[in-house]
């Protein structure tokens, strides 16, 4: 592999853009196809499929075997609420290779002392989220259970392609949340995207356990199909 290709591949990932490395096994040649160029590529259909599935693999072409190394952007978790659960979530998410952004307008919560080494935005979600631009590799986690803060973020999330939207709160809290969302004009299909109560049912009690259950649910959303079977391996 040419170092220039490796450098370009790493730069594309840092910019949160997908790319596919195409290796011709017989010839030993390689080229990098950027997401924007996939449509016009001779192997466009194959590359598009591989990227949609997020799956690297060998394909057969007229000229022999070609390996596609798919590089999708890393998962980005946008957590609303600089709360205790978020403090536990940050190191665990990092271990999984996810990027985390914490948003909370309450500066007493969103302090660098409480959240060192993580992107922290002490702004109201509607303002902060406008700047971020969510893609389909984004997971939203609403953790304040304060409608003033969570709701604007939820509206934003439901209008995005985010692959995961979770909201903390009891069934009762979630019930009144759904009422507000319907009033805001969201359909039942929209609303059904929200995972609430948030997290896998593992009996989590402590903030770290709740963070674990949320990350487990995010992993499941990433890896499993809607029917619970494996999408990729």
């Amino acid at each position: 592999m040419d170092l220039r290709i490796l450098t370009k591949l790493n730069a594309e990932r840092a910019a949160r853009r997908a790319a596919v490395l195409v290796t011709d096994i017989k010839k030993g040649t390689q080229r990098l196809v950027l997401e924007a160029d996939i449509l016009n590529d001779p192997l466009g259909a194959h590359l598009g499929d591989a990227l949609r599935m997020g799956r690297s693999g060998m394909i057969e072409t007229e000229t022999g075997q070609v390996f596609l190394t798919v590089q999708a952007p890393s998962v980005r978790i946008i957590a609303i609420g600089a709360v205790h659960i978020s403090q536990a979530l940050v190191p665990m998410a990092r271990q999984l290779g996810h990027d985390v952004i914490i948003i909370d307008p309450r500066t007493a919560f969103a302090s660098p002392e409480r959240f060192p080494d993580v992107t922290l935005i002490a702004e109201w979600p509607d303002k902060a989220l406008q700047m971020l631009g969510a893609d389909r590799y984004t997971a939203y986690v609403m953790l304040t259970h304060d409608p003033k803060i969570d709701d604007p973020a939820l509206f934003h999330a439901l209008r995005s392609d985010a692959f995961y939207i979770g909201a903390l709160g009891s069934r009762k809290t979630h019930g009144s949340r759904l009422e507000r969302l319907r009033t805001e004009g969201f359909s039942d299909t929209d609303i059904s995207r929200i995972k609430a109560p948030i997290g896998l049912p593992i009996g989590a009690i402590s903030p770290a356990e709740i963070a674990l259950s949320i990350l487990g649910e995010i992993t499941a959303s990433l890896r499993l199909k809607a029917d619970g079977t494996r999408a990729t391996r």
Binding site: L6, N10, R13
Partner: peptide, 30 residues
């Protein structure tokens, strides 16, 4: 902690830039 495949490719680039000889192994079929 370098554990994800993304970090690994970044590390390969850094090793090479340091002047080390570097090889990359990829699981291609299972």
């Amino acid at each position: 902690m370098i554990s994800t495949d993304d970090d690994i490719l970044k590390q390969a680039e850094m090793w090479r830039l340091e002047g080390r000889g570097v090889a990359m192994a990829t699981v291609m079929e299972t």
